[in-house]
Design a protein around this nucleic acid. Structure first.
Length: 887
RNA sequence: GGGCGUUUAGCUCAGCUGGGAGAGCGCUACCCUUACAAGGUAGAUGUCGGGGGUUCGAUCCCCUCAACGCCCACCA
């Protein structure tokens, strides 16, 4: 049969991708539409940072979310997927500062706040647009009209509204408190932004003099000798017998010779170090607490850039590393350095700058999260919000059950400026959503706004609200806040469970009383094929757009979806994308095969009685895969959904159904031809519907042919399980048919028959239904295994001698080739099979002989095992007969 | 120091409530067979990390050891 076909042999993704994306946009397919579910389904895209280009993690975000949203849309939910971008305070400011320094050798202070912000906005416009462009290439079906940037008007209002209300409630407060100070950024950062890394340092033991007890010397161990200038006490444990008598006495700090009290504090660990702790309330978190408990003064010895100030005159102007060397030198000179040994210990580093963070006391804004975090924990405990996979709730809990005040102020320029105002005349301080013209108290016009900006995650925490218009009533109405809040599912990576998920839960629940989403699906982290994190320094990053260009968006999406289940790593090998590109192309070619028959095909299925056994089978299998896919997608098992449909398309549909159809489509029976064409079309429509959420472009392209261009696939209803299509009997029959056919091919291969060599096959089976079906299928066997002639008889019939042969549980297959085959080879092949079957048989037989098994195992299992034993026995009998025929 | 996770075919991984070890890629042989060589047919490969326990039965449950990875933690 020569097929006249204008369709190209390989699918060209490029043309289809741009074309269909444009059409979907024009058709407003991404906009929410009421469906048969009469329910909304909202997904919030984690807004990418405007720092640069998208990476594979974003592609995974996009793929899983788009798959979910297309699936739910087709299932009849009124879906809304909200895109957006994040200003990413520190990151973006740092990137732009670096760029300006490189190009103009100017820092932000040289430019001034206004000019510098102008530059960042220009950067944002450029990269924001590029991000959107990249997302479109991946096929994301989000509602672009909802697109929001964190510094837009409404999010600004949200931030101010929340801040002011928390300020007035007393939950946001300003305090001189010890914070993580990043000297590179010259800003405070939050606990969550500090990474602890193991650092090689030294343990210094210093000798202190004690006044009124000249015979006593205290030995103090420290890793940071340079901080002695800020010490305001020595602490010992109140129960420590070694030092009890010294409590209340005075010690003298070497170098600066300042006198400090020896105090008692529970915090001091008797076992650790020497049992004596130098207390530095200005530059250590624990010491700060000790200082508060004991009313100690605080001394700050650092400048904001990380150098030492005049409070440490001997090392003024030096950086900590140099200062340490200098202090070591001085201590040695004084003879008070008793010991110095190597010591590995964890040191906090800034997440963005990678600089050592210096604890420092400074005036910052804090949000008290204690009450909010309790509510956020409860929401998950009571099932109002569920993590998929469930294990991640532990991570979430561990963070929220140990709440600390969140330092929300940053000494940066790029971000939401803190809406707190000060009066120079009367020193009043107040928070306001509107920018005031005068002091709220004394009406003076000499007022100014707090120069700091808020932590980026402050606005991120309000994202589910602000993207739907909150708190602007007009915007909320327009964006249908009531209908779309709360979100259905949040999809994101585990690295931001603390930063983002926890904060959204706290803040969203605080404002509305309802958690911002019902499900949180945590996807894996994309790594390279060796499992290493993709990073610039390793140069192992894969650019999603490169992959789209090389293999097509569909192939990349399928690869990412196929790798997304409940795993925490996704090791991506570009070869896998190539493999799935081949799958996409396979589907295309299956369609090419069908396309000439589409004209003949009817749109409605004929009545059931006309269906061929093949038809019943392929529909039953389709039904099975439909159920699996629905179940898998409902549980965010994208990997299972993909493997189910992959298997169906490749094995069931292409390898068997299409191959079996050729005979009919080439045959003389016109009615059968129409029926088969109709069936092929029907199944193919279902296949592309099932696949569309993962593989949107190719399926839409094929749909345009299947539907005659009358409708869009994106708008179709998803396939649902149909109990009427179940047909276990037919599936069993086809499995036997496939076994026999494969058996014949197996024999052919074992005796090196060429595909062109026609054969005569003698089948022996006692399964009458199978015998009948095999007989009816004789023409198909010609196509499938080049069988020219054959017979089917009961097993008791006389069998050919010395033939190439094989047996399974139900059928013995003989290909008479006397004189053409190597008898020895055949005999050894049969013997090997006997051995294996014998072993299998003995395994199950021993179970049946085991009294305990027969007594304890459930009926179901016993029957199953008996069934197996019988089939192994049947196969053995047949194999032994065959072996005998060679004697 | 605390917590979590991983360990199954050469590679990447699946294996859902315990009941004859799977997929994809790769590999081998043969085939340009009339949708597809980005293809077809057939095939090889596993002490399911080690040890113990529960059970009629363990890749799956419990204990223990080991290796690797991640997160958290006050830098004495």
């Amino acid at each position: 049969m020569e097929i006249q076909n204008d369709l190209p042999k390989t699918f060209d993704p490029k043309a289809a991708e741009d074309k269909w994306y444009q059409i979907w946009l024009e058709n407003k397919s991404f906009k929410p539409k009421k469906g048969k579910q009469n329910r909304t389904f909202t997904v919030l895209m984690p807004p990418p940072n405007v720092t640069g280009k998208l990476h594979m993690g974003h592609a995974l975000d996009a793929t899983t979310q788009d798959t979910l949203i297309r699936y739910k849309r087709m299932k009849g939910f009124e879906t809304l997927w909200i895109p957006g971008t994040d200003h990413a305070g520190i990151s973006t400011q740092a990137v732009v500062e670096k760029l300006i320094w490189k190009q103009e050798k100017k820092n932000r202070h040289d430019l001034g706040r206004e000019e510098f912000l102008k530059r960042i906005w220009a950067w944002k416009e450029q990269y924001g647009a590029e991000i959107v462009n990249q997302q479109k290439k991946m096929g994301v079906s989000c509602d672009w009209d909802y697109s929001t940037f964190t510094l837009d008007d409404v999010p600004n209002k949200a931030v101010k509204k929340f801040f002011v209300s928390m300020y007035n409630e007393g939950l946001i407060f300003q305090s001189d408190y010890i914070v993580n100070w990043d000297p590179a950024l010259q800003s405070a950062i939050s606990d969550a932004e500090v990474e602890h890394k193991e650092v090689k340092g030294h343990f210094y033991s210093l000798r202190y003099k004690v006044l009124d007890a000249p015979e006593t010397e205290l030995i103090i161990a420290t890793t940071r000798p340079e901080t002695i200038f800020a010490d305001t006490a020595i602490a010992v444990n109140p129960t420590d017998p070694r030092f009890k008598h010294l409590i209340g006495k005075t010690a003298v700090i070497p170098i600066c010779n300042r006198e400090i009290p020896i105090i008692a504090d529970e915090h001091v660990d008797i076992e650790k170090g020497t049992g004596c702790l130098k207390v530095t309330p200005g530059h250590d978190f624990n010491d700060f607490e000790i200082g508060k408990r004991n009313g100690l003064p605080i001394i700050n010895i650092l400048n904001t850039n990380g150098t030492f100030n005049k409070n440490a005159p001997e090392i003024e102007g030096l950086r900590p590393k140099e200062a340490r060397a200098k202090v070591e030198e001085l201590l040695t000179e004084l003879g008070v350095l008793v010991e110095k040994k190597d010591h590995v210990h964890p040191v906090g580093h800034g997440e963005r700058s990678d600089e050592i963070v210096e604890p420092m006391v400074s005036k910052q804004w804090f949000l008290s999260t204690k009450a909010m975090s309790e509510v956020a924990v409860e929401a998950v405990e009571q099932g109002e919000m569920t993590f998929y996979p469930k294990g991640w709730e532990n991570t979430y809990f561990s963070w929220l059950r140990n709440p600390k005040n969140w330092c929300i102020s940053r000494q940066l320029w790029w971000g939401h400026q803190i809406p707190v105002f000060y009066c120079r005349s009367c020193e009043a301080q107040w928070a306001s959503e509107e920018t005031p013209a005068e002091c709220a108290k004394c009406k003076s016009e000499d007022i100014f706004q707090d120069p700091d900006v808020l932590d980026t995650w402050f606005s991120s925490g309000l994202w589910p609200l602000s993207t739907l218009g909150w708190p602007d009533e007009t915007a909320m109405k327009e964006k249908r806040f009531e209908d779309f809040y709360p979100n259905a599912t949040l999809i994101t990576g585990f690295d931001i469970i603390f930063f983002w998920v926890a904060r959204m839960m706290m803040m969203g629940t605080k404002v509305t009383g309802t958690p911002p989403f019902k499900d949180v699906y945590i996807h894996a982290l994309v790594r390279d094929k060796q499992g290493r994190k993709m990073s610039k320094s390793l140069g192992n990053g894969i650019d999603p757009l490169d992959m789209v260009g090389q293999y097509g968006a569909d192939a990349m999406r399928f690869t990412l979806a196929a790798g997304s289940g409940y795993n925490r790593d996704l090791n991506l090998d570009p070869e896998r994308i190539e493999g799935y590109r081949n799958f996409v192309n396979k589907l295309w070619n299956a369609f090419r095969f069908i396309s000439p028959y589409l004209e003949k095909a009817k749109d409605e299925l004929p009545i059931h009685s006309e269906w061929h056994l093949h038809d019943k089978w392929i529909l039953a299998e389709l039904n099975t895969v439909t159920r699996s896919m629905n179940e898998a997608l409902d549980l965010y098992r994208f990997d299972e959904a993909c493997s189910e449909i992959y298997q169906y398309v490749y094995e069931k549909f292409c390898a068997w159904y299409i191959e079996l159809s050729k005979n009919i489509l080439n045959g003389p029976d016109e009615r059968a031809k129409v029926l088969r064409a109709t069936m092929l079309k029907f199944c193919f429509r279902k296949i592309v519907i099932l696949l569309h959420p993962v593989v949107p472009f190719l399926t839409e392209e094929i749909w345009s042919h299947l539907s005659g261009g009358k409708s869009l696939l994106i708008d179709q209803e998803y396939v649902e399980f149909d109990p009427q299509l179940e047909n276990l009997e037919v599936q069993t029959m086809m499995n036997k048919f496939i076994e026999v056919t494969t058996g014949i091919r197996n024999i052919r291969s074992s005796v090196n028959l060429k595909p062109k060599d026609e054969i005569d096959v003698k089948l022996f089976t006692d399964d009458k239904k199978l015998a009948k079906f095999m007989y009816e299928s004789r023409h198909f066997l010609k196509d499938l295994a080049n069988v020219k002639s054959g017979t089917i008889k009961p097993k008791s019939s006389e069998k050919p001698r010395r033939s190439a042969s094989l047996a399974n549980a139900h059928t013995e297959i003989f290909i008479p080739l006397e004189g053409l085959i190597d008898i020895g080879e055949q005999v050894s092949r049969i013997r090997k099979d006997i051995e294996k079957t014998q072993a299998d048989y003995q395994k199950v037989e021993s179970k049946l002989e085991n009294e305990n098994f027969m007594r304890n195992a459930p009926e179901e299992i016993r029957t199953e095992v008996k069934e197996k034993a019988r089939s192994f026995q049947d196969k053995l009998t047949s194999l032994n007969d065959i072996l005998a025929s060679f004697q």
